[in-house]
Amino acid sequence: SDEELKKRIEELVRRGNKDEARKLAENANSDEARKWWEKLEQL
Protein backbone atom coordinates (compact mmCIF):
# COMPACT_ATOMS: atom_id res chain seq x y z
CA SER A 1 0.00 0.00 0.00
CA ASP A 2 1.04 3.62 -0.43
CA GLU A 3 1.05 4.18 3.32
CA GLU A 4 3.46 1.30 3.97
CA LEU A 5 5.63 2.48 1.13
CA LYS A 6 5.77 6.02 2.49
CA LYS A 7 6.76 4.72 5.91
CA ARG A 8 9.59 2.68 4.40
CA ILE A 9 10.80 5.61 2.32
CA GLU A 10 10.75 7.90 5.34
CA GLU A 11 12.66 5.35 7.41
CA LEU A 12 15.36 5.03 4.76
CA VAL A 13 15.71 8.80 4.50
CA ARG A 14 16.00 9.10 8.28
CA ARG A 15 18.81 6.56 8.26
CA GLY A 16 20.59 8.62 5.63
CA ASN A 17 19.94 6.04 2.92
CA LYS A 18 18.54 8.47 0.35
CA ASP A 19 19.61 6.52 -2.74
CA GLU A 20 17.75 3.47 -1.55
CA ALA A 21 14.70 5.59 -0.70
CA ARG A 22 14.75 7.19 -4.14
CA LYS A 23 14.95 3.82 -5.89
CA LEU A 24 12.07 2.54 -3.81
CA ALA A 25 9.94 5.58 -4.70
CA GLU A 26 10.80 5.41 -8.39
CA ASN A 27 10.23 1.67 -8.71
CA ALA A 28 6.98 1.81 -6.78
CA ASN A 29 5.13 3.20 -9.78
CA SER A 30 3.14 5.33 -7.35
CA ASP A 31 2.73 9.08 -7.80
CA GLU A 32 2.03 9.43 -4.10
CA ALA A 33 5.28 7.68 -3.18
CA ARG A 34 7.24 9.85 -5.60
CA LYS A 35 5.73 13.07 -4.27
CA TRP A 36 6.43 11.90 -0.72
CA TRP A 37 10.06 11.20 -1.62
CA GLU A 38 10.45 14.63 -3.22
CA LYS A 39 9.00 16.23 -0.11
CA LEU A 40 11.34 14.31 2.21
CA GLU A 41 14.31 15.09 0.03
CA GLN A 42 13.78 18.83 0.61
CA LEU A 43 14.27 18.45 4.37
Rank of each mutant, 00 (worst) to 15 (best):
K39W: 14
R22Q: 06
Q42P: 05
D19S: 08
G16S: 02
E10P: 00
E3M: 12
L24A: 03
L24V: 06
G16D: 02
D2F: 15
R14V: 05
N17K: 13
V13F: 15
L12F: 03
Q42T: 09
S30V: 03
D31Q: 07
E32L: 09
E38T: 05
V13C: 12
R8H: 06
A25E: 01
L12V: 01
E41G: 07
E3F: 11
E11S: 09
N27G: 11
N17F: 14
R34C: 08
D19E: 13
K35R: 13
S30T: 11
E32G: 06
E3R: 08
N27I: 09
L5K: 00
R15A: 13
E3K: 08
V13G: 01
E4S: 09
S30P: 03
S30C: 08
N29R: 09
D19I: 08
E3L: 12
K35Q: 11
L24H: 01
L24R: 00
E10S: 08
A33K: 02
E32P: 04
K7D: 04
A25L: 14
D2C: 14
S30D: 06
Q42L: 11
W36M: 04
L5Y: 05
E10D: 05
E10W: 13
K6M: 15
S1Y: 13
L43P: 05
I9W: 02
K35N: 08
I9V: 03
S1G: 11
R8D: 02
K23H: 08
R22H: 04
D19N: 07
S1H: 12
K18D: 05
L43Y: 10
R22D: 02
R34P: 01
K23V: 09
E11Q: 07
E38W: 05
L5D: 01
L5Q: 00
A28Q: 05
I9L: 08
R8V: 08
G16E: 01
R8A: 09
L12C: 07
D31W: 06
E20D: 06
D2Q: 11
K6W: 15
S1M: 15
L43R: 08
R14E: 05
E26L: 13
D31Y: 06
A21F: 02
E26C: 14
E20M: 08
A21H: 00
A33L: 15
S30G: 06
W36H: 07
D19V: 08
I9E: 00
K6D: 01
L43F: 10
W37K: 03
K39C: 12
K7E: 05
L12M: 07
G16K: 02
L43T: 09
E10Y: 09
K18N: 10
L5E: 01
W36V: 03
K23A: 12
W37C: 07
V13P: 00
E10K: 07
E38H: 06
L24G: 01
R15N: 12
K7H: 07
E4M: 11
N29Q: 12
D19L: 07
E38Q: 08
G16L: 02
A28T: 07
Q42S: 12
A33H: 04
A21T: 00
R8C: 12
A28K: 02
L24K: 02
D2M: 15
R34H: 04
R15V: 08
K35G: 07
E11N: 08
E3Q: 11
L5N: 01
E4N: 09
D31A: 12
E11L: 05
E11F: 05
E10T: 12
L12I: 01
R14F: 04
L12K: 00
R8F: 05
D2A: 12
E20T: 04
E10L: 15
E10C: 15
W36E: 01
S1F: 15
L5P: 00
V13S: 02
A25Y: 06
K6Q: 05
K39H: 13
E38A: 09
A21S: 00
L12Y: 02
K35T: 10
R22I: 04
L24N: 01
L12Q: 02
N17T: 02
K6S: 04
E20S: 03
K39D: 08
S1D: 12
K18A: 10
D19W: 06
S30R: 03
E3N: 10
K23C: 14
V13M: 15
A25M: 14
K39E: 12
E3Y: 11
G16F: 01
R15G: 09
E26H: 07
N27W: 10
D19Q: 09
S30Q: 04
K7S: 10
E32K: 06
A25T: 04
L24W: 03
E4Y: 11
V13N: 02
K39V: 11
V13I: 14
L24D: 00
S1A: 11
K6C: 14
K39L: 14
K23I: 11
E11G: 05
K23E: 10
E26N: 05
I9S: 00
E4A: 12
D19P: 03
K6A: 06
R34E: 02
L40V: 07
L40Y: 10
K39S: 11
S30K: 03
L24Q: 02
R14K: 10
A21W: 02
K7I: 05
E11R: 04
K6F: 15
N29I: 09
I9P: 00
D31F: 08
R34N: 04
R34S: 04
W37D: 00
K39N: 10
E11V: 03
E32I: 09
D31E: 12
E26A: 08
K18M: 15
E20A: 12
K39Y: 14
L43Q: 10
R14W: 04
L5A: 01
E38N: 05
E32N: 07
L40F: 12
E20Q: 08
E32C: 07
K18G: 08
E41S: 14
E20G: 06
L40E: 03
R22F: 06
V13A: 03
L5S: 01
N17W: 07
L43C: 14
K7N: 09
K7Q: 10
E4T: 09
K39P: 01
N29Y: 07
W37E: 02
K23T: 09
L5G: 00
W36D: 00
N29L: 14
A33F: 15
I9H: 01
R15Q: 13
A21E: 01
E41I: 15
N27D: 13
